[in-house]
Nucleic acid binder design. Structure first.
Length: 485
DNA sequence: ATGTTC
């Protein structure tokens, strides 16, 4: 793919489109990538990241991570920090699947211990963690009770027996963004979401049994701090978000913003998909409060899924989940907007950070990460495709160059439509089983869309984040079992 | 991503 002529190489893994690349840019646009990944990016990335650079109140740069690709308004892999007083909030900078994120859970089992029961284990997970479009969960909630879930997130789960106390500490922001207000959420969103707690969803959402092979440990000391202590230790990784609920919240407020952006607030954008409102406006604050509900719904969703996973392991291995060492490493969000304090031009100040397909990666010693990770920096979980593996990384002090943010996954190289034409789900399932990965899916078409070859090489993506100083590799994790939504 | 095109 040809890159724009105006693109300048600032450092080996940093590329910049200067102000003036297109009219209206307030700051330069920065792309983190190796030369190989840069050339694998679609033209939409350059178009979209430079459009983001035109949004009112943007600070420093508009950014795109190494796994960046074309998305709704913002690129997926997009990062933009706004001045909360003069800037805007934009749903396109967060994504439809609000608080889509990753959770990584330990076990003290080895691959050899799991292997004889792997099929049964994956089948049970497939049966007990509902997946697929329109899937509904086993938690029966009234609409009113669901409103408490979305205001309290993981705290609701703790009160209702779905969490261990320490799970909350190992979740970004304790599993609850404060200030969530269910009265800012439409009845339609509540109606779509109230029966979706504890469900995986579809698309690239999955639940995976993985192995930390000894030869894939990059930093043994940090791995140990993250709970990876034994050769061929088995871990569980899953990826999902706020389901139909978050989707409806995003849809509702995109509509609202389109109605007021120009007429009421006089804001012009290059693309209607960048619909936004001043952060301090009524509409902006309402969306922020509703978005937090979706964030908390996703935290609660992943928490209830973890509860179900623990039940399945207890049944399959006839042992208590505590005895199986099923503690969380961490839970990271990769589709959010959040007020954070950052050093901007030598001054600590509050900024509104939009991360869309981009993971917070706080470095060592920073406020807001668990004490046990103070020395190492926060754990960062980056999911690859179901065929090629995933990574556990750590935040770095040099992450300050991008508001302590890193990549979130592989990034697609082809559309879902193309992948479906190229791959056949049933054959893929057989091929993967021959290579030691047992897959269960609700949809063979959906499986084909997620073929490893439809994604960039995860090794390339994490290498780029490390070279750029955004996050460093700790352990590569290899899949042996997968439940595909 | 998504009661996958109100």
């Amino acid at each position: 793919m040809p890159v724009p002529n105006a693109l300048r190489n600032i450092a080996p893994t940093v590329w910049e489109l200067p102000v003036g690349y297109k009219p209206g840019m307030l700051v330069p646009a920065r792309i983190f990538a190796t030369e190989k990944l840069l050339h694998a990016m679609d033209a939409g990335v350059f178009e979209q990241v430079s459009n983001v650079a035109c949004l009112p109140g943007i600070i420093n740069h508009a950014y795109c991570m190494p796994d960046g690709h074309w998305g709704y308004g913002f690129p997926i892999g997009g990062l933009a920090a706004m001045d909360p007083e003069a800037g805007v909030i934009s749903p396109g900078g967060i994504g439809f699947d609000i608080n889509c994120g990753m959770r990584l859970v330990l076990t003290n089992l080895t691959c050899d211990e799991v292997q004889p029961r792997l099929h049964h284990l994956v089948d049970q997970l497939f049966y007990r963690v509902p997946a697929g479009v329109g899937g509904h969960g086993f938690v029966r909630l009234s609409h009113d009770e669901f409103c408490r879930v979305v205001e309290q997130g993981s705290r609701w789960c703790l009160k209702n027996g779905y969490a261990w106390p320490e799970d909350l500490e190992m979740t970004e922001e304790g599993g609850c963004f404060p200030g969530a207000d269910a009265s800012k959420v439409s009845a339609k969103a509540v109606d779509r979401g109230y029966n979706q707690i504890g469900t995986l969803g579809s698309g690239n959402h999955y639940l995976e049994i993985q192995v930390a092979r000894r030869e894939n440990v990059f930093d043994e000391e940090t791995a140990r701090a993250f709970g990876i202590t034994a050769p061929d230790q088995v871990v569980i990784m899953f990826h999902c978000g706020s389901r139909g609920f978050g989707h409806q919240v995003a849809t509702d407020y995109l509509q609202t913003f389109l109605g007021v952006m120009e007429k009421k607030y006089g804001i012009q954008v290059n693309d209607r998909e960048l619909a936004c409102a001043p952060f301090r406006s009524r509409e902006g604050q309402d969306y922020f409060a509703a978005m937090k509900c979706a964030v908390n719904m996703a935290f609660a969703n992943r928490q209830v899924i973890l509860h179900r996973i623990r039940e399945v392991f207890a049944d399959v291995f006839h042992r208590d989940p505590r005895d199986l060492g099923m503690n969380m490493v961490y839970d990271v969000a990769h589709n959010t907007a959040k007020l954070e304090r950052h050093l901007v031009q030598g001054k600590m100040r509050e900024v509104l950070v939009h991360r869309k397909g981009a993971t917070r990666a706080f470095g060592p010693g920073m406020e807001g990460i668990p004490d046990c990770y103070r020395e190492t920096g926060q754990p960062v979980i980056i999911g690859g495709s179901m065929e090629t593996g995933s990574y556990l990384l750590a935040g770095m002090a040099s992450g300050d160059q991008a508001f302590y943010t890193t990549a979130h996954g592989s990034g697609r190289t082809m559309s879902r439509h193309q992948a479906k034409k190229l791959f056949k789900g049933q054959k893929l399932q057989r091929d993967m089983e021959a290579r030691g990965i047992y897959v269960q899916t609700v949809s063979y078409g959906g499986l084909a869309e997620e073929a490893g070859a439809a994604y960039k090489d995860i090794d390339d993506v994490v290498e780029a984040t490390e070279l750029a100083g955004l996050s460093r590799r700790i352990v590569k994790l290899t899949p042996v079992g997968n439940v595909k939504g």
